[in-house]
């Protein structure tokens, strides 16, 4: 079996385990009720999106330094999956916000910075499509891939630096997580599941990109 296949099956199993943890094992949260279970989708997707854009950053630096096409393909694939996951995070957060906050959307620092984040990497993908010469497309994209990562600390720390409607992180913060172990366990299983899904998508996507390049060149 190829790596992609193994990753695909692992991700499928982990996602199933994540659903069991999120809906079967974790308790109904005391303050919010069952709508809190959206968190098992919302938090892992953004954390894996951070990972995806960190990979874009590193792969872009490697590409500019070594001009290795493989690094460019990994950056391209990783950005695509990162945008997908960020989109899922935003949509699920909005659906959660309506019954809990009382609004689908508000322009606080967290929601604004994550929107900018999303748009920058969407721009990255659009730019890749707009430039015909693959070498130039890769070079320009690498610059955006590096600059876009500047926004990452802004997204994460916005809830500490400014007053926001969005609450601060519960898991990715100094000190113990502010939640019972069963909720934390459900989050961690889902985090692993989405990380595996990310890896599967990136491996598969960069292979397709490699074969596209082969077919063209």
């Amino acid at each position: 079996m190829s790596i992609a296949r193994v990753l695909g099956w692992l991700a499928t199993l982990a996602l199933a385990a994540g659903l069991v943890m999120g809906f079967g094992v974790a308790p109904r949260e005391a303050t919010q009720g069952n709508v809190q279970r959206i968190m098992y989708l919302h938090v892992p997707t953004i954390l894996v999106a951070y990972l995806a854009f960190a990979v874009v950053l590193v792969a872009s630096i490697v590409y500019l330094a070594r001009r290795a096409d493989a690094a460019d393909r990994i950056a391209h694939a990783s950005a695509e999956v990162g945008v997908l996951f960020t989109g899922i995070c935003i949509v699920s957060g909005s659906i959660w916000g309506k019954p809990t906050w009382g609004t689908w959307w508000t322009w606080d620092a967290r929601l604004t910075s994550v929107s900018i984040f999303f748009v920058v990497y969407l721009g990255y993908l659009l730019l890749r499509g707009a430039v015909d010469d693959p070498e130039r497309a890769a070079r320009y994209a690498a610059v955006i891939g590096i600059l876009g990562a500047l926004n990452m600390p802004l997204v994460h720390f916005s809830v500490y630096w400014w007053r926001t409607l969005h609450q601060p992180p519960s898991m990715l913060k100094p000190g113990a997580a502010a939640m019972p172990p069963s909720i934390l366990a459900a989050l961690l299983v889902n985090l692993v599941a989405f990380a595996l899904l990310y890896a599967y998508f990136v491996v598969k996507r960069s292979r397709v990109l490699a074969r596209e390049a082969e077919a063209l060149g």
């Binding site: 906050w101 009382g102 609450q167 601060p168 519960s170 939640m179 019972p180």
Partner: peptide, 21 residues
Amino acid sequence: TQILAKHSEEYKAPHDGEPAG
């Protein structure tokens, strides 16, 4: 004109005392 509830970062199992927030 609009009321928004602010949630805290604390999550609690049922019957775990003081409301988070």
